[in-house]
Simulated scan of single mutants.
Amino acid sequence: MDDSSVWSLRLADEAATLAAGRQLARGLGGGVIVTLHGDLGAGKTTLTRGVLAGLGHVGRVRSPTYTLVEPYELPTLAVYHFDLYRFADPAEWRDAGFAEYFGPHSLCLLEWPEKAQGCLPPADLAIHLDLDGDGRQLTVTALTPRGKQCLSILTTPAAD
Rank of each mutant, 00 (worst) to 15 (best):
V51L: 09
Y85E: 04
L68T: 03
G41I: 08
T139C: 12
P64M: 07
A96F: 04
R86I: 09
D124T: 03
D95V: 12
E111S: 06
V34S: 00
L47D: 09
G118R: 07
Y66L: 05
G43Y: 08
R62G: 12
F102Q: 05
F102A: 00
C108D: 06
G147D: 00
P145E: 12
L68G: 03
A42M: 13
T139V: 14
G118E: 07
E92I: 05
R136M: 08
P121R: 06
G41L: 04
R49N: 07
Y72E: 03
R60H: 14
D130F: 13
R49W: 08
D95I: 04
Q137M: 15
D39Q: 09
S106E: 01
A142T: 09
F102I: 10
L138F: 06
T141I: 07
G54L: 02
K148V: 13
T48A: 08
P113T: 06
A116G: 08
D132F: 13
G41C: 01
H57V: 11
L77H: 00
L55H: 03
D95A: 15
P104I: 12
G118N: 00
G38N: 08
L107A: 11
A78D: 07
V58F: 13
S106V: 00
D39H: 11
E70I: 00
L84M: 10
A99S: 13
L120V: 02
P75R: 02
R49C: 05
G147H: 01
P122N: 14
L74T: 03
T67I: 13
A53M: 11
T46P: 08
K115E: 08
P122K: 14
F102C: 03
G147N: 05
L74F: 02
V34K: 02
T48V: 10
V140L: 10
L68Q: 04
L36W: 03
